[in-house]
Design a protein around this nucleic acid. Structure first.
Lengths: 109, 109
DNA sequence: CGTATTGTTCACCTTAAGGTGAACAATACC
DNA sequence: GGTATTGTTCACCTTAAGGTGAACAATACG
């Protein structure tokens, strides 16, 4: 459940703006390579590499149909990241609230 | 609201297991550099560099008290990441559900 | 068949990330 | 004052990430 290596890859995959753009587009629905990378001013090899990262991370899936590659988002890694963050953020908030309460108690004295 | 550069830095900061470990510890409450990095088998310069990344990303804050540096988590970047992911994941789920409903409708025909 | 389209692979380059040991700085302690 | 502790800075090394143009592969289209 605490798969460090997978989280490494997921965070890393989303650290690049081009890859986040692609993910954001695929969140709107499947697309081909050309569609998913339109407007990113990147060479084709660069796009290919970014897609490979996303694919190996498990963030996207590819189906070759004719000469096009149809890409679709796989949200499981997103959910994993969200869960990791949510866990630690709320833990921190709990601690913080405890301190707040403690200070409030002291003010009452 | 859509601060790409900040998201770049935040995702990147959390992509390294050592930095995630430090963040996880600080979620339990403040700690010194030594405490926060205990058990990570890393040289001191390496720890210093990781802390610098976390600090510049805004994920931690440092208060020098005597010869110790007291570190505390700043959860805002975590919240930003969580929000980005949540937005796109739910968008995808909405699309997915729409397809599911469409298929269900077709099965009824 | 010839050619346009979609995308990958190849060979390469440059930069930055992550790591180290050694030296330094500042505070604490006896 | 001398020394231990806490942490950073310095100088360096190695590897991987990200980028490119050129060539290739496979399908589509006239």
């Amino acid at each position: 459940m605490n798969n460090t290596a997978q989280l490494d890859r997921s965070f890393d995959a989303l650290a690049h703006p081009a890859r986040r753009t692609i993910v954001a587009r695929l969140a709107r629905g499947p697309a081909t390579v050309g569609e998913a990378s339109r407007g990113l001013s990147l060479s084709k090899p660069a796009v290919t590499k970014h897609l490979k990262v996303l694919e190996q991370t498990g963030l996207i899936r590819r189906t070759v149909v004719g000469r096009e590659h149809r890409l679709e988002l796989r949200p499981a890694p997103l959910a994993e990241i969200e869960s990791w963050i949510e866990r630690h953020r709320t833990l921190w908030e709990a601690k913080f609230d405890a301190v707040e309460r403690h200070l409030a108690d002291k003010r009452k004295e």
